[in-house]
Write a protein that binds this DNA or RNA. Structure first.
Lengths: 211, 211
DNA sequence: AAACGATACGGAACGCTGTTCCGTTTCACA
DNA sequence: TGTGAAACGGAACAGCGTTCCGTATCGTTT
């Protein structure tokens, strides 16, 4: 689970459905230079995110890609759009893992535990992503919205299943749980003394109390 | 290297002990204007923190106090020192509440729950404090260190007592719990759908599992 | 009281951000 | 091959934290 990103699949994202909509600028262009820059930019961003975190200066990404900053903003109107584009399929994979775990796991609560671990692993391996995903983070609202759109239904499904099975108390919203998990992951990659995974496990365990 | 020559020898009180640290830089000055500005600055900062959060621009604080930015930095070498000075008393109160709750509460775990509530209430009512307290937050290391210095022993005491009483698992460090609580409070004040107190309670409840 | 030396003062200036703007270049199509 | 539309680069703008330094003020000394 180390590398993860790379361009793997960026070229594959044909962008047919694209419910997010913000991808309009970078869909299928007639011009070759546009497509090339788009791809170069995504590769450069992925590389810079790994070394400098998702809050790396836009100029760094532009430099790494060998383009001007204007080009970055033309392709990705906001930094969040760039982050989304880079991590889109990993988020999707996380979303798709939900139902699979629910079907496979011994109990809904076990599935929830595993799904949480998956989500945590994703967040902590992307330098600064958890922090950037914060709701109040100016300029990253789109990122926050994307995570919610994609993962909230999955989280709700797991939560509902566990509640229906009588395993957990049913009065915590999926939104609260998602934010709790996301918050617990903030800064985890920079602090060896802190184990986000552990705390998230504790939180999920806490859901069982007084079921 | 560039020409960033510092001239030392101005701040004469560096070796002065002052460990627990009253006010950081400017304790008892001979000059009247110094003391006056110090006070004005603290009042202004407190007011601005309430309205704009602890990450408010230094210029705003200076303007509110009617002084130049240079004055702010002379009194409080870093923004974190200003934040610490403003909230010191409340942090101290929180630290002192720990042993009191332990003595009063029915069980150590109940005391831990109440203390966590106290800490959460403090954090969420100070706009942005939880985020600023983050370890990786550049320029706020001092703040992080102060919270740790002050509250970690208290948290450890509560945790140890609960563990000794057999109420909780004993393999979570006080540091991890503190960071977990702090993290869960991030952005709580800006999001009505999110209830940090609730999630922290869940986390603390999770400590009981498998005791 | 007046002059003096120390030091605090204000705010311009610096370096670093994200973002916008626009003159110039490149591309696809005719 | 010509041409117009679109993308390009990067200078420019705005806003941040922080530093620097000439000037103003203070407490002391004569």
């Amino acid at each position: 689970m180390n590398d993860g990103n790379r361009q793997e699949g960026q070229e594959g994202q044909e962008g047919q459905g694209d419910q997010g909509g913000q991808e309009g600028a970078t869909a299928g262009s007639k011009r070759k230079d546009v497509r090339r820059n788009q791809r170069t930019l995504l590769d450069a961003a992925a590389a810079v995110f790994v070394t400098s975190g998702v809050e790396a200066p836009v100029r760094d990404i532009a430099a790494k890609a060998g383009v001007g900053v204007g080009t970055v903003y033309r392709h990705f109107p906001t930094r969040a759009d760039l982050v989304i584009a880079v991590y889109r399929h990993q988020v999707d994979a996380c979303a798709e893992a939900g139902p699979a775990l629910l079907a496979a796991g011994p109990t809904p609560h076990a599935a929830l535990e595993r799904w949480a671990d998956l989500f945590v692993d994703f967040l902590v391996t992307k330098h600064g992503l958890a922090g950037a995903m914060q709701a109040d983070n100016a300029g990253f609202e789109t990122l926050h919205a994307y995570f919610l759109d994609r993962l909230l239904p999955v989280c709700a499904e797991l939560l509902d299943a566990a509640a229906a099975a009588g395993e957990i108390r049913s009065d915590l919203t999926a939104y609260q749980l998602m934010r709790g998990i996301g918050n617990l992951c903030i800064g985890a990659e920079a602090d060896a003394r802190y184990d986000a995974r552990r705390l998230v496990a504790l939180l999920v365990a806490g859901l069982r109390q007084g079921r």
